[in-house]
Write a protein that binds this DNA or RNA. Structure first.
Length: 513
RNA sequence: GGGCCGUUAGCUCAGCUGGCAGAGCACCGGACUUUUAAUCCGGGUGUCGUGGGUUCGAUCCCCACACGGCCCA
């Protein structure tokens, strides 16, 4: 921090010193306010409405309010400040004849400081509900200037790196995160109301299984063991179904060591739920109910504008067969291309950039995400996926090569993924082994990993179960109209600036020399 | 990983063909006892992202790097 007296910070240091010279603690331990600003304003307006003309019998309410100074209009021997707290803002009036020597404090106040103000509420000539300060207490001196009040904070890098400034500068940002909280709350209430038990499963795991993703790895010193950050909660939640819980869910952070873009952050929030004696049809009904309710709770309506579209989450949502829809959109009947080479040739014909060697599951995934997903604007279920891309899902009776799995889409984005869970331990072992052999054949490809302890659990018997995964951040994007995942994460992952990077990193570099 | 764009005062942004670094808000000094982006008078507070290069001279041209954004893979 610069300490030159002519700098913006420097002038605040001068004021801080002056406060201390006057015997004022610029960071006192507490301040007892009588109300927040919104409640005080509401109370005053109610008092006005009651309309007592007799100020003696019914004087205007008195309060001690506190907040951050967000604007100041100083006019000689009177001044108007706006202070803001978490509930809202209120105007404060300072007058020299009321405050006496206390009025001098104004000279040492800056935008950004927190103050407490005691006095009577009134309405000014221009109609603003105001507290007239009879006493003023400095609660916390701000040492840096705030972003400009009119244009706000436009620099997205600062908005993400210093989110607190973004929150100070833009009330809509605060509202978006309040909506996020309401979405998650609503989902919790929905599941709790249906008898689901919320649980916590390990984040540090010996095997990063349950999804196709690259994990972060770490090391536990005392155990001298390699550990991973979980990429999914699936296999632990299923162990709990084996253990006898009928309905469990977890809303937790998972970690995938992959790229960062508009809808990927290396850590994100995943909801997974498992319900014994249910199948993917039951889960579909639940997803419609849960997400439409979340829309209603967060936004007050099930019709949510997103980009150019209005997305209507009211159930029921159309249910389309993946195979049929893919054929309709691309002209490719995947069953006519049982061999991967024929499928690759067909895809190249269609102008899809197919890598040197890609597994069948991945090829089909590319077809679907190219031809089908972008067209699923209104909430839609896509049903019955090829087994190749779904190692944890149970086969669909009468449809060899397909499993009972659905994904839900809205605005072209995946918002849910669900299976009738595979509970045959021998088949599950074969599926894991098939995944491992894909890893060997197609080197760069991420596949699911074999979790021996999970197979042991399955061998004890898991009832028929319907499972669900929902990417909460993307759902919140949809429900709050945000185009980037960074706008629904308070602190999105950012690359450290070089000078900020930790000692460990440079230490390692030194050690290599 | 590739392409394009951005980085100038605390914030939001100008800065022409290479010639003394600019505005608004914020800030500092002064006036002002009912203001609402208060107003009026005076003041520019800067590592032009970083490091090289070209040039008499670089915010500007060239190269590399850093960080960010968008598009593509």
């Amino acid at each position: 921090m610069q300490d030159r007296e002519d700098s913006l910070v420097g002038s605040r240091i001068v004021k801080l010193d002056r406060l201390r010279e006057k015997g004022i603690d610029p960071y006192p331990p507490r301040y007892r306010r009588t109300s927040d600003t919104a409640a005080a304003v509401a109370e005053f307006e109610a008092w006005e409405k009651a309309g007592s003309q007799d100020e003696e019998a019914s004087p205007a309410p008195e309060h001690a309010l506190a907040g951050r100074i967000v604007s100041m209009r100083v006019m000689g021997r009177a001044a108007f400040l706006d202070i803001r707290d978490g509930s809202g803002a209120v105007q404060v009036m300072f007058r020299q004849n009321v405050l006496g020597d206390g009025y001098e404090l104004l000279k040492d106040l800056d935008l950004g400081d927190f103050i407490g103000v005691g006095g009577q509420m009134l309405r000014t000539r221009t109609g603003e509900v105001t507290i007239e300060a009879r006493d003023v207490t400095v609660l916390a001196k701000g040492m840096r200037p705030l972003p400009e009040k009119y244009h706000g904070l436009r620099d997205v890098e600062i908005r993400y790196r210093q989110r607190y400034l973004d929150l100070i500068a833009d009330p809509e940002v605060m509202e978006a995160f309040a909506q996020r909280s309401r979405v998650i709350n609503s989902i919790r209430r929905y599941l709790d109301g249906r008898g689901f038990l919320e649980v916590d499963t390990p984040i540090l795991v010996p095997v990063a299984a349950g999804a196709h993703a690259r994990p972060f790895d770490t090391h536990h010193n005392a155990l001298n063991q390699r550990l991973y950050l979980r990429i999914a909660t699936e296999l632990y939640l299923k162990r709990l179904i084996v253990g006898g819980f009928d309905r469990v869910y977890e809303i937790g952070r998972v970690f995938r060591n992959e790229g960062i873009d508009q809808d990927h952050n290396p850590e994100f929030t995943l909801l997974e739920s498992y319900e014994a004696y249910a199948d993917y049809n039951d889960v579909m009904t639940m997803v419609e109910g849960m997400i439409s309710t979340a829309a209603l709770d967060a936004r007050g309506t099930m019709s949510i504008p997103y980009g150019e579209e209005i997305i209507d989450f009211a159930p029921p949502w159309p249910r389309l067969q993946l195979k049929d829809e893919l054929y309709r959109r691309s002209g490719v009947d995947i069953d006519e291309y049982p061999g991967d080479e024929a499928l690759v040739r067909k895809m190249l014909q269609l102008g899809i950039d197919v890598g040197v060697r890609e597994s069948r599951g991945r090829l089909i995934d590319k077809l679907v995400s190219t031809f089908v997903e972008p067209n699923l604007v209104q909430p839609t279920f896509l049903l019955d996926y090829p087994e190749d891309m779904s190692p944890l899902a149970k086969a669909k009776p009468g449809s060899p090569g397909y499993v009972e799995r659905f994904e839900a889409f809205a605005a072209g984005m995946e918002i849910a993924n669900s299976y009738t869970e595979l509970n045959d331990p021998a088949v599950q072992r074969e599926r894991f082994e098939a995944q491992e052999s894909i890893r060997e054949r197609y080197q760069d490809e991420e596949v699911d990993r074999l979790d021996e302890d999970f197979l042991t659990a399955l061998e004890y018997g898991m009832p028929p179960t319907g499972g669900l995964g929902v990417g909460i951040d993307r759902l919140v994007m949809l429900l709050t109209g945000q185009a980037s995942i960074r706008d629904v994460l308070l602190f999105p992952q950012m690359r450290s600036r070089r000078e900020d990077q930790g000692e460990a990193e440079s230490g390692e570099a030194d050690a290599l020399q």
